[in-house]
Design a protein around this nucleic acid. Structure first.
Lengths: 230, 230, 230, 230
DNA sequence: TATGAATGAGTATTCATTCAT
DNA sequence: CATGAATGAATACTCATTCAT
């Protein structure tokens, strides 16, 4: 339980603040409560409820218990808050994804399973952040958007990679690997929109089911390829 | 195939304008190009690109080729435009869903297949509208939101209904029918975020694959229920 | 009962529309109900309730039972409506004032009594119009204001005249005839703000009392009694 | 004679800012120059010249030497400015009226004289404010209007009170005390519309004359009552 | 970091007015 | 005269942002 980033507010942008920085081996599966600096916390809730354009800086100040100039002490603009927020969120996803891949066996099937499970967990435990990031991509100014998209693409390329690896090795059989990759990503993202880890459906049950689906989408093993299944 | 509703501007709200009014039997599968009155068309694009709060009335005016007061000639407020847009969109979904159910055999399996196929097609052919409706639900004022949510719930209840019917009849085997219903809905909604009907993956291939997935989620037939399969 | 200007709507400005044009001798004392063309009627009520700037042309249209272009058929602008309204009102006052003077004996005391009585009656029976004219003088555009003020000044000069005549003849004794004249005018105008001819205080009682006051303001001789002094 | 309240801008509404807070005994007769905070000053002039609806917020900003948002820093709306202005004005009148009554002898005649003199002085020295308050009553929103009217009614009830006291004690003889009260109030209000304290007619002369008139309206002492005087 | 004052540029909306039919 | 469509120019008000203290 590292002390680290309690509630002090950040300088902004680049760094993986999130909660406890995941050091140990396989803690990509463990999600503590989100402990953002208060401005990002305020921004996350506000953007989730009203969207970036529907949120005023006064709103952010009020929610973070700061004055308006207080907010500007930490961030030069509202846009920077959004960018920092989205950066922190996707950085966590990337870190966890890399860890998942690093700690899994090297075969495509294991790599695939680990990456998809990580994606699923992230969208289960970081629902709000994931939804805000998806919704507010369009609210990022061009430069920020480019930088964010680069990271998102990196994430997507990881998935593309393991799928292509699997196809190359003959363990996956999809005829449309790129579409499969997008479909699976979309599947995981969709979880954020409805699944609550504290609901009736146990986390493991959902992971299990969705993993099965994901595997079927890439046409694992002797299973059929994507098209009109024979 | 009447075209009718060219580009005349509407009174607003109530009516299923959209494209061709679907009269004949199974044309819930047929999607013509979207032919909204110009203000709704402008709103759809603008809200899609910048969101409701990120869109100005001037923007709507410019996009619809009107002056600002010209827009207000047809709608009393920006909020009414959003509400009308979302109403028109979900009304089309409801009409198509009811037609799908009405024209399919009465057994739960056929009902389920028809409804899911309809949902999928809608999110494939009405991508933008579907995404805007999802994203801007929060931008509806309370009364409008309530009215919209009532319709969305009606749609969701259709799906709940066929699933529960299937479970009752023993043809579906899920242990969490409500979660299954939400998962399937989320699956279909997700399609809008990445699938383009004019891409490499043929429509039928996607329908096929996703239907298979949907069926597996409700644990159809001899297939196993949700948990760790086999 | 002249036919004249029933309810047909006017061209605008100059003419003494009002009700029956007072032809006979001393009917400056008689006030029938106000029968304005409907646009002026609407304007009178609307301006009274909300003021010129607080009244929209749509409001005027609605109140007069016309469409907006219908209003513009009769008047080229809202400003012209105000000007016409105020013109019609002050014209009636002027006509009645002249008649009062013309039908009274030539001596200053009788002239004074007649003119003040006429002023009082006008502000009793034409309350709304008088108040609107007073309040909206500032809303007239320069040219219109000049023309209106000329008429109002003419009215004021009548009063100044009879008072100066009385002073010259030694029957009035005020040291500040101009102030006296303004005070008396203000007194009469003030009646419009509170007196209702259908209230408890009879018209004659009010006329009597106010005439007494007016006489005392100009410092009439051995002071005559109040009422219809005989 | 503290000056205090220079030109600092207010919180709004409740407080008697106006000029010097009248503390000492009989200073209800003393009127210094009006020293409103700049926004109220701007509003007073602007509303006087163009009326509430005829005044734009830009106009108010310009006149007060602020930007538009600068004005909104102090007041949440134009309506609040009007309400605060009218409140400040009538509060001064009420304070002075109460002081006039408190420092005069208890007999109805003295009370009456003091109250009427105070009313007259107020409408002489606070002309503009008095006229704006009268003219813009209709521009107050219902709640504000109710609160303002309550104060105006309190003022009117003071006058009603002393007149009814005098009638009860047999020193006043009017047959219509309520009408008399309104007539006298109207008389005083009317002074604002024409009298300038710096004109030819000395203040005392006007006070003297109008007090005499007011007394005659309530039919003081051996004088005759209102009606048909003998 | 808070407070308070301040603002350029914009935001939704309205207004008086016009024109074709 | 009505209807319906249309608009330039405003109108009240807000927003992100800044600065002095």
């Amino acid at each position: 339980m590292s002390r680290s980033t309690e509630n002090q507010t950040p300088g902004f942008t680049t760094r993986e603040v999130t909660t406890e920085p995941m050091s140990a081996e396989s803690d990509w599966r463990e999600y503590g409560p989100l402990e953002f600096p208060r401005i990002l916390d305020a921004a996350l809730q506000a953007f989730y409820e009203h969207g970036y354009h529907g949120t005023t800086t006064r709103d952010l100040a009020r929610r973070s218990g700061l004055s308006v100039p207080g907010v500007y002490h930490y961030y030069p603009s509202k846009q920077d808050i959004l960018f920092d927020l989205m950066t922190v969120i996707i950085d966590e996803l990337l870190v966890r994804s890399r860890q998942a891949l690093a700690t899994a066996s090297a075969d495509p099937r294991s790599q695939f399973d680990a990456l998809v499970e990580s994606l699923l967990r992230f969208h289960m435990y970081r629902r709000t952040g994931a939804m805000v990031s998806t919704a507010e991509l369009r609210s990022l100014e061009p430069d920020n958007r480019a930088r964010y998209v680069a990271k998102r693409d990196e994430q997507q390329r990881m998935l593309d990679g393991v799928i292509l690896d699997g196809v190359r090795d003959g363990v996956f059989a999809t005829a449309y690997p790129k579409d499969a990759s997008r479909a699976i990503a979309s599947l995981c993202v969709g979880v954020a929109s409805w699944y609550r880890p504290d609901g009736t459906l146990p986390v493991d049950a959902l992971l299990d089911r969705y993993l099965t689906i994901a595997r079927s989408i890439v046409g694992i093993s002797g299973e059929t390829a994507s098209g009109r299944s024979r």
